[in-house]
Design a protein around this nucleic acid. Sequence first.
DNA 1: CTCCCGATAT
DNA 2: ATATCAGGAG
Length: 210
Amino acid sequence: MNKKERVIEILKIFNELYPEAECSLEYMEPLQLLISTQLAAQCTDARVNIVTKDLYKKYRSAEDFANADQAELEQDIKSTGFYRNKAKNIIGCCKLLVEKYDGKIPDNLEEMLQLPGVGRKTANLVLYEVYGIPGVVVDTHAKRLSNRIGLTKNQEPEKIEYDLQKIVPKESWADFCHKLVYHGREVCNARKPDCENCRINSLCDYYNKH
DNA sequence: CTCCCGATAT
DNA sequence: ATATCAGGAG
């Protein structure tokens, strides 16, 4: 079975296990999703949701974030880690949004990647959630599972993104990545993957070689 | 490549 | 004590 056929089989099983692929980040509008995704770098979604519950009452628009006091914003988001970089990036990002995009989210990858603190993972996720634009979202889970299953041998997220684009149906790009995240959390952990109880183990190189 | 960084599970 | 968490910039 080639990689494309394996992905089809994996998708069938994932659709049973994780039927609704909801974003774990809680948000009411596109800007909040963008901020939450930036905060989610090397931090759990659960922690981000705790912080943003109060954050989005205090800062209600791109203007509010653009005019925020950096030291104060740092304290507001401190528990998500990397708080100095994140605060600086969020302020710079929102200033650019206000100046160039009337406080709205750009609808293409090139302009998204110009925003401070926005890389390919964040850009692809937001573009899919907000505009429905297909994108392969490679985060720490997608990277780990893609390598274990044997869908790529690359370690660089951008190369993994292009590898998955070739073997996953375009209409399932974001959905497949999202389900990899769920499976990564619940079964295929970084530390101790539960291969014996994994529904896709017969399709996984890591399981078949261990 | 290194650095950023707190919270949590093991 | 240590590894890990829906990464990005220099």
